[in-house]
């Protein structure tokens, strides 16, 4: 049986009918064609599918689309650019510090870190590593990811706006 869901995604209201087992990451990727959010492990472990639900980082493989009904979702596609239309400062920091290798985990990393920087704008390295406990990267060894977050600290204000 299909269930109606209305979810505000990156500021736009979306309404569709979905089967109950449809996860939020499947809704974003397969229904809305927002494919920046990746699905990795399917088991709430790897963090690749991290998005913000009502402003908080969650793993979208373990949220049903019907559970997001009436709520707001932000994906990495929704991050506003910096002044002059460039990348969001956090994305720019990942680029500048080369906090990316294959890139599969990156959208989830960015959304997890955004949650940290909104609560704690100037984290130290230990706080960054703790905040990334739920995000796995199999390429970088995390060094450049942590460096990117530290470089971006203070550059991101409330609600992820530069």
């Amino acid at each position: 049986m299909a269930h109606p869901v209305t979810v505000t995604v990156n500021g736009a209201v979306t309404s569709h009918r979905v089967a109950a087992p449809t996860t939020l990451v499947e809704y974003l990727r397969d229904v809305l064609d927002l494919t920046a959010t990746n699905e990795g492990c399917d088991t709430t472990s790897c963090g690749s599918c991290t998005v913000h639900l009502d402003g908080e980082a969650v793993k979208a493989c373990t949220v049903l689309a019907v559970q997001a009904h009436g709520r707001s979702v932000t994906t990495v596609e929704g991050l506003a650019g910096g002044p002059g239309g460039g990348l969001h400062p956090l994305l720019e920091a990942f680029r500048a510090e080369h906090g990316v290798q294959c890139g599969y985990c990156t959208p989830g990393m960015v959304m997890a870190v955004l949650g940290l920087l909104e609560r704690c704008p100037h984290p130290d390295e230990a706080q960054v590593r703790t905040a990334l406990k739920g995000n796995l990267c199999r390429c970088t060894g995390y060094h450049n990811i942590v460096a990117a977050v530290l470089a971006a600290s203070g550059a991101t204000g409330a609600a992820g706006q530069p």
């Binding site: 963090g47 991290t50 969650v58 949220v63 997890a112 406990k133």
Partner: peptide, 9 residues
Amino acid sequence: VGDPQVRNR
């Protein structure tokens, strides 16, 4: 428990 994302849900 779990990680920050898990604790948010």
